[in-house]
Nucleic acid binder design. Structure first.
Length: 640
RNA sequence: GCCGAUAUAGCUCAGUCUGGUAGAGCAGCUGAUUUGUAAUCAGCUGGUCGGCGGUUCGAAUCCGUCUAUCGGCUCCA
């Protein structure tokens, strides 16, 4: 017998050699039907792989991400099988599952190309093969046999992948007539794949290296039910409608100009108001939490960035130094605020009594992002970080960390994001030379984050290789109204800059000590945050953020003056809005202002003027009937 | 930065393949209308067809180049 421990901590005994499937069956028939794969002792495996020793196990179904990814990975193999049938001689590179579907990088036979026009016939072939209900069969093979197989087949990319693998760890998976080099796991049978949609075709370099040959990447998604595919496609339609680049233009929030330059957003009046309200709200929270607001210039001497280490790391790829009439003098547009804040720390000697010192700045920075990377407001070359640097003692790190997480949770909740995850971003253990700073400091920093995360009330995940080059981070991710996941701000522990800038404080022992620096930005940047907020809300911002909270709609010009009076009264209550006094029908005014996502439309005609009230119409909900102005004001204040 | 595509009125788009100097709807302006819960009617204005260069008797249309945008890739202090 072996002991199997479940995620909830329960331990049960099973016969040695039981599979995840057997274990699922012992829980319920439904689970046995739906289980797709399992994580056994931290490794994702097939559901029918015998377990011979005590283990911890998590069962995966279509409901969780690992289950989905197993399903999609298997679909990638199914697509490969279809492609091989349709394009004999096609060569295969990588074919993994991702967060949202799968792809396969392939090289079509000489002289042939695959375009989106070919998708229907590939999809059809895939479904045809799926209906054969072929099992995915796992097989352990020797390196020599594996090499022989793919050399014979002429799959040079697979042969290359095999070179890096060790004998004894190599497995093949076969379904129907298609065999692939694959670590697995896979779903048991192709029959589960009921709906398939190929989404995109594009280029991708073999192994992500632009020196290598470019392969054709075909990506798609699949589902166990046709209905789920339909819902997914509807979600994509909705996402298109909410695209912040489209809404930004329609709602007149921000713009770009070819003349000003790529990636340099300009906030129009309504966008500026929105951004300012977000910033003011955060600033108030920060002041309450002991932050002090500061302002620093947009440029700094090149030397500042030589000291910080950023020149060596990013100098070549940055906006190049600004020259002055003076020989040899060079300034850089600031790509981050930390060096300025470090100098501010050094303004005078610091005592341990004034730590933690929390310097906050809505600091605008400039980074020369690659041309192909620019994207609306979410990836730009000039942006404003909701930045702050906390200088503290090593003992204070954990407490400061927890306080930052508190602010982030409160602020994001207020703005309407309730599904927040914290990602612990650590070094990639395989590439230690990518990072600067002492090994010892890295270990302390990584450990403080891990320790702090044990105490926070937030979902956490760990990601290796996602750390910044100078320190580990905690990244905040939100799930939006369409279920998409976005990365927002970060908290980063930094032992490196205090070294480089030789920051010190005098401790209770009357000796100098080195402070720790924590970088943090809950939104990340105002630009990126706004882009996510626009897509999350589809432009229907929370009432307190809406640039205009109401529009008064006079039914005819006779009521314009009365509306102006109402506007004054509402302004006295800090309720902001406009009168739509255009010479248009009421139907037209309603339509135009509904499309502008105005939260409340106040319609005023004969009846309302006589009664001294308004007829309320709520955005997206329609007519709510007539009420007095005072009643509207109290209703408004309740909604706020 | 790399691969591929696109750029025509404020917006959304037709015209480009097959060269003969532009068209629609909406927006805007003017007038009529004075409106009761998602588009009132009529008239008018508006474009060196992204910039520069080339081919040609003639270029929105063909070629080159630059800029910007879009979809991927790589990247993201």
């Amino acid at each position: 017998m072996i002991n199997i421990k479940f995620p909830d901590g329960n331990v049960r005994q099973f016969a040695a050699g039981s599979t995840a499937m057997d274990i699922a069956a012992s829980i319920s028939e439904g689970l046995a039907r739906n289980v797709l794969s399992a994580t056994v002792n931290g490794t994702l495996t097939d559901r029918n792989l015998p377990i011979t020793q005590d283990a911890t196990i998590a069962l995966h179904t279509w409901r969780d991400q690992q289950g989905k990814e197993t399903f999609w990975h298997s679909t990638a193999h199914l697509m490969a099988e279809a492609l091989e049938a349709l394009y004999p001689g096609i060569k295969f590179g990588y074919g993994p599952a991702g967060e949202n579907g799968f792809f396969y990088d392939v090289e079509p036979p000489e002289g042939q190309a695959i375009s989106s026009d070919d998708f229907p016939k590939i999809e059809q072939k895939m479904l045809e093969l799926a209906r054969e209900k072929n099992d995915y069969v796992r097989q352990e093979v020797s390196k020599a046999d594996a090499l022989a197989y793919f050399t014979e087949k002429g799959d040079e990319y697979k042969v290359e992948l095999l070179q890096d693998l060790e004998d004894g760890t190599i497995t093949f998976y076969t379904q129907g007539g298609f065999t692939d080099l694959c670590r697995g796991p896979h779903i048991p049978n192709t029959g589960a794949i009921k709906a398939v949609k190929l989404m995109k075709v594009g280029g991708a370099f073999w192994r992500g290296n632009e020196e290598n040959k470019q392969l054709t990447r075909i990506s798609g998604i699949s589902f166990p039910k046709a209905k789920e595919l339909k819902e997914y496609l509807e979600m994509l339609e909705e996402a298109k409608k909410r695209d912040h680049r489209k809404l930004g233009k329609e709602l007149e929030l921000f713009m770009f100009s070819e003349k000003v330059g790529a990636g340099l957003p300009m906030w129009l009046p309504k966008g500026h108001q929105l951004r300012q309200r977000l910033a003011n709200y955060l600033e108030k929270k920060q002041e309450a939490a002991g932050y002090q607001q500061v302002t620093t210039p947009h440029i700094g001497k090149k030397d500042l960035y030589v000291t910080s280490g950023h020149w060596a790391k990013y100098g070549e790829d940055s906006f190049q130094p600004i020259k002055t009439p003076r020989e040899g003098e060079e300034f850089m547009l600031k790509p981050m605020n930390c060096p300025h804040h470090c100098e501010m720390y050094k303004f005078r000697p610091r005592s341990y009594r004034e730590l933690p010192l929390r310097l906050a700045e809505f600091g605008t920075v400039y980074r020369y992002e690659q041309t192909g990377e620019l994207h609306g407001l979410s990836r730009v070359r000039g942006f404003t970080q909701d930045d702050a640097h906390i200088f503290c003692t090593p003992e204070q790190v954990k407490g400061e960390f927890l306080a930052v997480v508190d602010i982030v949770q409160e602020v994001l909740g207020m703005i309407g994001f309730d599904d927040v995850t914290a990602q612990i971003s650590l070094r990639d253990p395989e590439t230690p030379d990518k990072y600067i700073g002492k090994e010892e400091n890295w270990q302390i920093a990584e450990q403080s984050i891990i320790d702090a995360c044990k105490e926070i009330d937030m979902k956490t995940v760990t990601a290796y290789g996602e750390a910044a080059f100078y320190g580990p981070k905690l990244d905040f991710m939100v799930r939006d109204a369409l279920g998409r996941s976005w990365q927002l701000g970060t908290v980063q522990v930094d032992y490196n800059l205090p070294e480089r800038f030789e920051l010190e404080y005098i401790g209770p022992d009357n000796e100098p000590h080195r402070p720790v620096m924590i970088h943090r930005a809950p939104f990340g940047s105002m630009e990126r945050f706004t882009s996510i907020l626009i897509e999350h809300t589809a432009g229907k911002f929370p009432l307190w953020l809406a640039p205009e909270q109401y529009v008064l709609l006079p039914i005819s010009e006779k009521f314009n003056d009365y509306c102006e009076e109402l506007k004054t009264k509402l302004a006295a209550q800090d309720i902001r809005g406009l009168v739509d006094d255009r010479n248009e029908t009421i139907g037209r005014k309603i339509r135009d202002n509904e499309l502008k996502r105005i939260p409340f439309l106040l319609i005023v005609g004969e009846k309302e003027m006589e009664a001294g009230g308004v007829a309320l119409r709520i955005q997206g909900e329609g007519d709510k009937g007539t009420m007095s102005l005072d009643n509207f004001i109290s209703f408004f204040q309740e909604q706020l």
